[in-house]
Nucleic acid binder design. Structure first.
Lengths: 251, 251
DNA sequence: TCTCATGATTCCATCATACGGAACGAATAC
DNA sequence: GTATTCGTTCCGTATGATGGAATCATGAGA
């Protein structure tokens, strides 16, 4: 059996088959249409019989389902799990996110700090055709995202240093901050001005404005993000006002 | 390694560790509070080191998360999966379900036919303290549920017979229908009166009124259910009116 | 209706992988 | 300071996951 790569979609894990199973689910989630077995196998890099056996298990569990065409899709069991995994904050932020998108016409996000990672828990996508793919559930390192920096700015420097020592500061783009001092300076600036800016630090060409929800435990933040061509000063100014108001209301 | 029972929470599967992983998630979902390792292991019947290894994998994948107390809870990754697993119908039915609960003060459900099983995909729980545990994601056999019978009544008898030959007709309570003829008669009656009744056939003491969504593919149905002490004739009459109206609107 | 091709499913020999008892370590209570 | 409880790591074992090859559906094209 090969022990090398094998599970590209999701990160490493401990129990191979479980990691592979979620890799399959992720593939089904990413596709905007149900997929035939061969396609799922190809996308996950699994051997066809292996993918088949895993999918059959997921089918039995109700976590995947199969159409008459034999194509596979996500199953209803995930609905309940997803709902119960949603923090109450996400529910109450729904309205705020809708208003934010309304005001800025750009994607509005809510994220919380989950351990050392930032997890996106709710989103209202921009009405524009060109927008970020929905990233609810995605987790990223805090040092290179608007929401992450907004949250870190609420923590004592000692906690930030500890976190960074565990996560490191990999660069995703040329503008990513990669040293502790750079980041701490940025956080001071964030506290001063009351909001965080991510100018292509996570992904080239994407600008993001974020404000922490005051007093939230675990830390949480709201953001508005879009292509920097559209995120003009005027929009940013408007976004800051709305974000700050929304964050206050949530608190 | 024991090959006997081992995974009580969820149904059988093919790949043991995947079935066990979901058994753990189910345990976390069922608990209304985060659980320590020992407790999760106990509830799933898994050995502590096994549960630990699986949970660590789920942690890495973001499907579970761990609080500072080391207790485990469902992770944010499930939110996105859950959303994408939700059929569009569930989204648009939200308003209708809220109105239904409003009118009857009893739990309102939306279910779809997933293969041979009925899957609950959306719910607005009753305001009463005494009510069904949320069952979004749960799948049951159609012959013994209100929504199931409402859906089956829309299918040609041949299709119903085929389905029954695959699923069988186990009795859950003394009033469960257990023969094909009984069920087919019930379905004819359902078509005649325009709604299905489940009088304690799924669970003793629970009465349920259901109406199919006309023309839905796959078949879908709305229902209102509650303890039969509260599901009086007056409530039922009101429920039927509202359910029928709501089902028309959804179609 | 009969190829043929494509893809899904089942088999099965192989051994890597998941397993869990036991030992160890951390954290809290007493 | 000691005991107790709970979490984590170790590691030998053999089970259960694996994937190449064979078989079986399905649908297209003639």
């Amino acid at each position: 059996m090969r022990s090398e790569s094998a599970v590209p979609a999701s990160g490493g894990g401990q129990v191979q088959s479980v990691a592979r199973a979620f890799s399959l689910l992720e593939a089904l989630a990413t596709a905007d249409t149900p997929l035939p077995l061969a396609e799922v196998a190809a996308r996950t890099g699994l051997a066809v019989p292996t993918a088949h056996r895993l999918l059959r298990t997921l089918l039995d569990l109700g976590v995947a389902r199969q159409l008459e065409t034999r194509d596979y899709a996500l199953g209803p069991r995930l609905i309940g799990l997803g709902e119960r995994a949603t923090p109450p904050l996400a529910e109450s932020a729904r309205g705020a996110l809708i208003q934010l998108e309304e005001a800025a016409q750009e994607t509005a996000n809510l994220a919380v700090l989950d351990g050392d990672l930032v997890a996106y828990v709710a989103q209202v996508p921009s009405r524009h055709r060109m927008r970020m793919f929905t990233e609810v559930g995605r987790r990223v390192l805090p040092h290179a995202s608007g929401v992450g920096k907004a949250m870190l700015a609420t923590l004592p420097e000692r906690r930030v240093r500890e976190l960074l020592s565990r996560t490191g500061m990999p660069a995703y783009t040329p503008t990513s901050l990669t040293t502790e001092e750079e980041l701490l300076a940025d956080l001071r600036e964030t506290r001063r001005r009351g909001f965080a800016i991510d100018d292509g630090e996570q992904e080239i060409g994407v600008r993001c404005i974020a404000v922490a929800v005051p007093g939230a435990v675990p830390p949480a933040a709201l953001s508005i993000s879009g292509p920097n061509a559209r995120m003009t000063d005027a929009i940013v100014e408007r976004a800051v006002t709305e974000l700050t108001r929304a964050a206050q209301e949530l608190a």
